[in-house]
Amino acid sequence: MKRLVFAALLMLVSLYCLGPFLWQGLTSLKTAADLTRLPPLLPHPPTLEHYRSIFAGHPLLRIIANSFIVATASTVLALSIGSLAAFALAKLPVPGKGAVLLLVLSTSMFPPIATVSPLYLLIRAAGLRDSPVSLILTYTSFTLPLTLWVLTHFFRNIPDELYRAARIDGCTPWQSFTRIMLPLAAPGIFATAILVFIFSWNEFLFALTFTSTTASRTIPVGIALFPGLHEIPWGEIAAASVVVTLPLLFLVFFFQRRIIEGLTAGAVKG
């Protein structure tokens, strides 16, 4: 009985999360004429036309590659810089920790639409326009506050005794950071990494402003550039969102198994 309820709840949650996406998938298989008609619910007959056309006219793969590069670099940067700082804030004697945390947080209190203009000036002055580096730096700085706060919490949660024991055993702060703290905070690091990665993968406003050619264009802007003046090519957008979301999910799934389960299994026991 209990298991039945549990299974039902799982079904409910997946339906809620998956429903609109599945609908998007169905939409991507419908003919243009059926896009705005209900019934029929199911594509009848299903067509792969939209998938053909997103790969035919656009450098979609290039754009996905750009997004992948930008998101990976931002994630690695934000996580490494953020975890260093978080470690210091959680375990090392830093004067005015609260103030630092607050200061860091204050950078994410402005509406992004207000800071896009001045940031553009900076990017241009640095000669980074239309380069993935501009987006990587921007996303890193935007996701740093979250990274820092979440990881500070996770490091703080690790008993001080563990850290002290490591120091007594002769570890430098750096060694105790990489050998003890990082593995123990793995769940937090992993969760944050996913959030940062997806944020960078999906950001639109700054990507639109800082990029102008396929050399640096990322997915959301690429999708917005599917042809048509007032026309919104809905079938193509649906197809594209399926095509760009699946690799992302696969990636998450893969990492989930490989990293998180291995690491936490070891860490929690220890």
Partner: peptide
């Protein structure tokens, strides 16, 4: 640029 005139306008203004 994207078809939305809002987005185009904003792009030109910033630039």
């Amino acid at each position: 640029l994207p078809s939305s005139t809002d987005e185009q306008h904003q792009f030109y203004v910033i630039n």
